[in-house]
Design a binder for these strands. Structure first.
Length: 347
DNA sequence: GAGGCGTGGCT
DNA sequence: TAGCCAAGCCT
């Protein structure tokens, strides 16, 4: 354990006052708390997603839906399309459910306690604590992947993740100040993303280097230790590009599961071996146009792209005929956009 | 507890 | 360059 626990928060807050990143959802250090709506929206977008990726989505969302009432009134389809490309699409479904709960059951106001926030869709232990601290000034123990790394190094905690999480939480609790808990949390995350980085930490720039047991070991990058990952399996599939009258057939994927609720090209099964034209939307003269690859969280996907035109006099299958010229506005996940780009390259 | 669930940046 | 990793949540 670091010799002087009480020195960590003041040193970190001083550093934050001078070095805080300027972010569109963040109030400058020392100023009144930012709009809870913006804090909530940014925190959900930032779940497992880096700042640079989130920023343009955040700007687009607040311009279009500036508060809970406007977001609660959005159509599911337009919300899902606006989220396309950001990933983890359950977040978008929960975002809408949460906005509607706030608008309809909480008088348009976000609960201002960790417990109240935790009960809302899409808000887990981390996000509830972060919003309580950042938007409402509550003392809350905020632990994300950055904080895990910073704390595991400060305390040189030897236990591998995920088993070591309770010890990390206890250690974080021991250095969280009563005042400015929101700034403290954001300072820890700025430190983790810019200085206390995973591979090669910039310890010479670190404001708490002198308190850091991991630095003292000479190998801070060794913390936190992690259990080995499982290998990702390879799967194969077919994406179907069915044209008719300068339009292409799109479908809505099932509400839950992979890419749930998103607009997409029709697909066959994603299996261990290439499925060929199984489950094509119509019986047509399918031609293989190329292939696209994509990595998901837990498997890799390699897809054949097959194209055809709708045979004359054949009844149209279920789905939307989307104008090919405006396909960018359909809001499809990335693997389908890759297939779209492939087809555009062949025109 | 462990696995499902996206995507892009970095080394 | 091919992993590794990320402001996690839900079941």
């Amino acid at each position: 354990m670091p010799a002087n626990l009480s020195a960590i928060a003041p040193a970190l807050l001083d550093w934050y006052d001078a070095n805080a990143r300027s972010l569109p959802w963040r109030a400058p250090p020392g100023t009144p708390a930012p709009d809870p709506y913006r804090v909530w929206l940014s925190e959900v977008m930032l779940q497992q997603t880096q700042v640079a990726t989130v920023r343009p989505y955040f700007e687009k969302f607040v311009a279009r839906w500036p508060d809970f009432a406007s977001l609660a009134a959005a159509e599911d389809a337009e919300l899902m399309a606006a989220w396309a490309g950001l990933g983890y699409y359950a977040r978008a479904r929960n975002l809408l459910a949460c906005a509607r709960a706030v608008a309809n059951e909480h008088g348009g106001m976000l609960p201002d306690t960790e417990e109240g926030l935790r009960a809302l869709p899409g808000l887990g232990a981390y996000t509830a604590a972060a919003i309580a601290a950042i938007a409402f000034g509550r003392r809350a123990v905020v632990v994300d992947a950055n904080v895990e790394r910073v704390v595991a190094r400060l305390f040189a905690l030897p236990q591998p993740l995920p088993a070591g999480r309770p010890a990390i939480r206890t250690a974080t609790e021991s250095i969280t100040p009563d005042a400015r808990a929101g700034d403290f949390a954001q300072a820890m995350m700025d430190l983790g993303s810019g200085i206390c980085t995973p591979r090669t930490p910039r310890c010479l720039l670190c404001p708490v280097r002198t308190e850091c047991d991991g630095f003292a070991t000479g190998h801070p990058e060794a913390f936190p230790r992690k259990a080995p990952r499982r290998e990702k399996p390879q799967r194969h599939g077919t994406l179907f590009w069915l044209e008719h009258d300068a339009r292409v057939l799109l479908v809505r994927r099932p509400a839950k599961g992979l890419l749930g609720g998103m607009r997409a090209l029709p697909t066959g099964p994603w299996a261990e071996t290439p499925p060929g034209m199984a489950e094509a939307p119509v019986d047509a003269d399918w031609q293989v146009m190329g292939a696209v690859a994509h990595g998901f969280t837990h498997f890799r996907l390699s897809c054949t792209v097959a194209a055809a035109t709708l045979p004359a006099h054949m009844p149209a299958p279920d789905g939307e005929w989307w104008p090919i010229d405006s396909l960018d506005e359909a809001g499809m996940p990335t693997v389908f956009v890759r297939a779209q780009r492939l087809m555009e390259g062949l025109r």
